[in-house]
Design a protein around this nucleic acid. Structure first.
Length: 702
RNA sequence: GCCGCUGUAGCUCAGUGGUAGAGCACUCCCUUGGUAAGGGAGAGGUCAAGGGUUCAAGUCCCUUCAGCGGCUCCA
């Protein structure tokens, strides 16, 4: 006698086991018609799932009551669409395509597969889309059935698909490997499963089938609209030593309108992309002849970067930091001591060897040279991968008393890292970047307050720039990995300090194992770019290890040497990446204090050129970045041109304005204009100077 | 690094094996004007680079370089 509790608290009693579909039908025919699945005691299940015990149940429909798409419905639709796409691909590309793993994602779904016959290419997309549409139109039922573990495994082995066999073994808990990797069947139940579940898209034995834990929508027709999006390569189980698979991405929505809206949104995101805006507004340039991932900051972009740098520098002065400068290279031994060279050689530019050494070596092979460098027999220099060793040497260059602590050394330090070519991306992933770096050398007692101070600084910066959409991650060590340096006790202390500081921050944060730096745990501020990729920006890292490696000490009140603790912190993270994210945050329309060109003066005609020049120089004298457009063009054309540069203020000046020593202000985004009453020039200048000085987020002179 | 896609003027992009194109931007001329493009002319190209097939290659093939989307990595 199952008693079903509905989301509104009402209950329904049934005389025997019922399916979720029957529950829906008992509520209403419309709900039964719209239902895609059910959440039974919090677990998403098929509509055909049988309920034989008291349970809470919520029927999943494409839209929630408030009309918003239901994420559970999207999950069901996309998971189901992955099956339909796989069937379509096997029809179009070949039956020998072996399926591996096909889950839904935030924006759609993918299916990893191995195509031994011929590669799947983008040229197949049209046919695949057509075939998918046919399968959807056929409206075949997703039919779940189970087989015993033995039967199911035997069947999968006979089919010769090692990936599915592997999935099944993992699902059954029989794999020696960790069980948190993609599993296809029955996981989620408490006990070790004894059966494997399969889904036929239609009639078992007749139509297409796949090992799958489910759940799915009731039939293919309920997948409103699906589309193949792109191809990528992937590794089986994400292991780069394992098989390389082809990953086919697709997306699906309940309706074609929603799919179209999503595609339009992707298109819009492209226009907001910092690489696109960076080119249009000439903020930066990447040149093939200079090299991949090496940013050339053009004058306009340099202004944005410099303003940010001035902003944070002013904060540092208030907070007792001391500025230092260090070179871009250092001797290999330094990085042997720090651990960078031995452990991270692959992600650095190769060492620089002195000419005399090279000449003395004569006809030594490259491999020999590499070995002798690695072995320490030959020394050289490294383009610095981090600033900390240099700053450590500054700390160590003078005797330090506990009275001097904390010592806070700051530098906008440029570092170089050898990122894999396929990983480089605009400003967000580069091979040379400038860290708004600082290293705080403090006593152990000072660690909590100093970490908190660093976090506050990040909060201030994000606040001034209006960046609210970020998440905080406390990166801890992965207990199973050996990439970390230092004793466990040091790590425990450092991790506790980070966790406590994060708690005091007043925002939600996640703790993630395996996300620590090699020398210590960290607190990262992470934001998403326009295409949904996450990037780490600000970071605060507690480090008990490098002070040991470099044998740092300060004299305590007991007149004995003590070990300092280091805090590495960078509120922007990297100037390059931060600017990239910031360009997208503002879509290139920077607040006035950051805008490369803050004001443009537009004379109505040549008669007003003289006045325009006077307005221009009056503004320039007050430090405003201003130009005058003296082109032989009508005012409409000048406004159009200026608009494309996203300039905060346009000052239209003609004889009428000149008479009153005034300007007609057109603020960015204030279109639809027409004549505006002139503002006295003095008043405009004072206002815009104040706006810049206060780093106002909005245009106050609008 | 791996898989797929892409590379034509400063930018956005057409281009079917047979003469290198458009719009915007740029320069000059006409126009002297009041809030999102007035008109005309001109200049601008090793079609990413290199090799091959062909009577003929921007177009077909190979290699390399670079960009894009993912994967892996990210101190």
């Amino acid at each position: 006698m199952p008693r079903i509790t509905l989301p509104d608290g009402k209950t329904k009693d049934f005389s025997g086991p019922v399916t979720a579909r029957e529950v829906a039908a008992s509520i209403g025919p419309r709900l039964a018609r719209d239902a895609l699945g059910a959440k039974i005691d919090g677990e998403l299940r098929d509509l055909s799932a049988v309920i034989d015990h008291d349970a809470k149940i919520a029927i999943v429909t494409p839209k929630k009551r408030d009309g918003a798409p239901d994420p559970d419905a999207l999950f069901l639709i996309r998971h189901s669409a992955a099956h339909v796409m796989a069937e379509a691909i096997q029809d179009v590309v070949g039956k020998d395509v072996q399926l591996a793993y096909g889950p839904p994602t935030d924006t759609g779904f993918f299916y990893d597969m191995h195509a031994p016959g011929r590669p799947i290419t983008a040229g197949d997309f049209e046919k695949i889309n057509v075939r998918m549409a046919e399968i959807v139109k056929e409206d075949r039922a997703f039919t779940r059935y189970e087989q015993s573990a033995e039967q199911g495994l035997a069947r999968l082995r006979a089919e010769g698909n090692k990936y599915k066999v592997d999935n099944a073994e993992r699902a059954l808990g029989r794999s020696a490997l960790r069980a948190d990797t993609p599993a296809a069947a029955n996981v989620g139940s408490e006990s070790r499963p004894t059966h494997l579940s399969f889904y036929a898209t239609g009639v078992p034995g007749t139509n297409w089938e796949d090992l799958c834990r489910g759940p799915h929508v009731p039939s293919t027709g309920r997948i409103g609209a699906a589309k193949v999006m792109s191809l990528a390569s992937s590794y089986w189980h994400g292991d780069e030593n394992s098989d390389r698979l082809t990953r086919v991405y697709g997306t699906a929505f309940a309706t074609k309108e929603e799919l179209d809206a999503y595609l339009a949104q992707l298109e819009q995101a492209r226009e907001r992309d910092h690489r696109v805006i960076g080119r249009h507004l000439r903020l930066f340039h990447i040149d093939e002849d200079v090299g991949q991932g090496l940013i050339l900051w053009t004058p306009a972009g340099s202004i944005v970067r410099q303003e940010l740098q001035n902003f944070v520098t002013a904060e540092l002065v208030k907070r007792g930091y001391q500025q230092v400068f260090t070179p871009h290279i250092g001797k290999l031994g330094l990085y042997r001591t720090s651990g960078h060279f031995p452990y991270y050689a692959d992600s650095q530019f190769p060492p620089l060897i002195e000419r005399q050494t090279l000449e003395a070596l004569g006809a030594c092979s490259c491999a020999d040279l590499a070995n002798r460098v690695r072995g320490g027999e030959i020394d050289g220099y490294l383009l610095k991968p981090m600033n900390c060793p240099h700053h450590i040497k500054i700390f160590a260059s003078a005797p330090r008393s506990y009275r001097d602590m904390p010592v806070r050394l700051a530098e906008f330090g440029t570092v170089y890292r050898w990122e894999q070519s396929g990983e480089l991306s605009g400003l967000t992933r580069v091979r040379s970047f400038t860290v708004d770096d600082a290293h705080l050398f403090c006593t152990e007692d000072q660690v909590p307050a100093e970490v908190q101070g660093c976090l506050e600084l990040v909060k201030i910066i994000f606040g001034v720039l209006g960046m609210r959409d970020y998440r905080v991650r406390v990166g801890l060590r992965d207990p199973d990995s050996n990439k970390y340096t230092g004793p466990a006790e040091a790590w425990d202390k450092a991790e506790a300090a980070c966790r406590d500081a994060a708690k005091s921050l007043g925002v939600a944060f996640s703790e993630e194992a395996g996300e620590a730096a090699f020398y210590g745990p960290k607190i990262d501020f992470i934001v998403k770019d326009v295409i949904g990729r996450e990037w780490q920006l600000g970071t605060v890292q507690v480090d008990y290890n490098l002070p040991v490696r470099f044998d740092l000490s300060y004299i305590g009140p007991d007149n004995r040497p003590h070990r300092p603790v280091m805090i590495h912190r960078a509120p922007f993270g990297s100037m390059e990446r931060f600017c990239g994210v910031l360009i997208e945050h503002f879509a290139g329309a920077f607040p006035t204090w950051l805008a490369p060109e803050q004001v443009r003066v537009l004379p109505i005609s040549e008669k007003s050129h003289g006045y325009a020049a006077r307005v221009e120089s009056a503004l320039r004298e007050r430090g405003v970045r201003v130009t005058a457009d003296l082109a032989n063009d009508r005012i409409q054309g000048k406004i159009k041109a200026a608009t494309e540069w996203k300039i905060p203020y346009l000052l239209v000046v003609g004889p009428r304005d000149e008479e009153q020593n005034a300007v007609s202000v057109r603020a960015r985004g204030g279109g639809g204009g027409g004549d505006t009453p002139p503002v006295p020039l003095d008043r405009f200048i004072a206002g815009v100077v104040r706006e810049i000085g206060t780093k106002a987020a909005g245009l106050t002179m609008a």
